[in-house]
Amino acid sequence: MCGRFAVTLPNDAMAQLFAARPSNSLPFVPNFNVCPTNQVHVVRATNDGRSLDPLRWGFLPHWYKSETAGPLLINARAETLAEKPAFRTACRERRCLIVATGFYEWTKTETGDRLPWYIHRRDNAPIAFAGVWQNWGAEDVRQGTCAIVTTPANRHLSAIHHRMPLILDAGDWPLWLGEAGKGAARLMRPGPEGMLDYFRVDTAVNSNRASGSDLIERVAI
């Protein structure tokens, strides 16, 4: 699962990295505490090449009458992505990349305290989460929404959580976006053991109102 993440790459650098045309209304960066329902940076394939767009993190199926008409769908399980009514069409036709620098997970102590961990690529490269997207709402007020695809955690990450986001290397971006034909299903597997590392961070990030670069600073344990 992924319930909070950070993005620090400048918008122009994101556009260059993904060879995407940037929207004029991209979210502010850096943001060290991206929360569900926030606007996030999403790369999509279009007839005119890739675009870098702001989408609401929280997928809204077309049958929702309001944004709160059902569960908040911030994650989509890879194992059932092609079967669930909410996601199955998006799985075939509307896959995307969601840009991040790192993400957070929590463990619990015996007393129920939530201890946050910051997870990042060991090579410190930006992260491209696999995602799916959906336009929702009436024609005059339609908004783009998205969810992050998750897989079972690999052995290394399972020490702190049983799920992990599906993270794609640059060579896999064309296949996931549909630019390289069919076969994206083979990408839906846990990331390699050596890809990610993690460390404890301050409990300040437990609040969705927290901000600042200190949220991703290592704390002693």
Rank of each mutant, 00 (worst) to 15 (best):
P22R: 14
S23R: 11
S23V: 08
S25Q: 15
S25C: 08
F28N: 15
F28D: 12
V29R: 15
P30A: 07
P30R: 12
P30H: 07
N31M: 06
F32D: 12
N33K: 08
N33M: 10
N33V: 11
P36T: 06
Q39G: 13
V40K: 07
H41P: 00
V42S: 07
R44N: 06
R44D: 07
A45L: 15
T46P: 00
N47E: 07
G49F: 10
G49M: 06
R50G: 11
R50I: 08
R50P: 03
S51Y: 09
S51M: 12
S51P: 00
L52S: 10
L52P: 10
D53V: 15
P54H: 08
P54C: 08
L55T: 01
L55P: 04
R56H: 12
R56V: 06
W57L: 14
G58S: 14
G58M: 05
G58C: 10
H62Q: 15
W63V: 10
W63P: 13
Y64E: 08
K65R: 13
S66D: 14
E67R: 15
E67P: 10
E67Q: 13
A69V: 02
A69K: 06
G70P: 05
L73W: 04
L73G: 07
L73I: 13
L73P: 02
I74M: 08
I74F: 05
I74D: 02
N75C: 02
N75I: 01
A76I: 04
R77G: 00
A78S: 09
T80I: 03
T80C: 00
E83T: 07
E83V: 04
K84Y: 02
P85V: 03
P85C: 03
A86W: 00
F87V: 07
R88M: 02
T89N: 14
A90E: 01
A90I: 00
C91I: 03
R92T: 12
R92P: 01
R92K: 09
E93P: 00
E93I: 02
C96L: 01
L97I: 05
L97S: 01
I98D: 00
I98V: 06
V99N: 00
V99H: 01
V99K: 05
V99R: 07
A100G: 08
G102C: 06
G102D: 04
F103C: 07
F103T: 03
F103Q: 01
Y104C: 04
Y104F: 12
Y104H: 04
E105W: 10
E105D: 03
T107M: 02
T107D: 08
T109V: 09
T109N: 15
E110Q: 13
E110M: 12
E110F: 13
T111K: 09
D113P: 05
L115D: 07
L115W: 02
L115I: 15
L115E: 11
P116W: 05
W117R: 08
W117H: 14
Y118S: 04
Y118K: 09
I119F: 06
R122W: 11
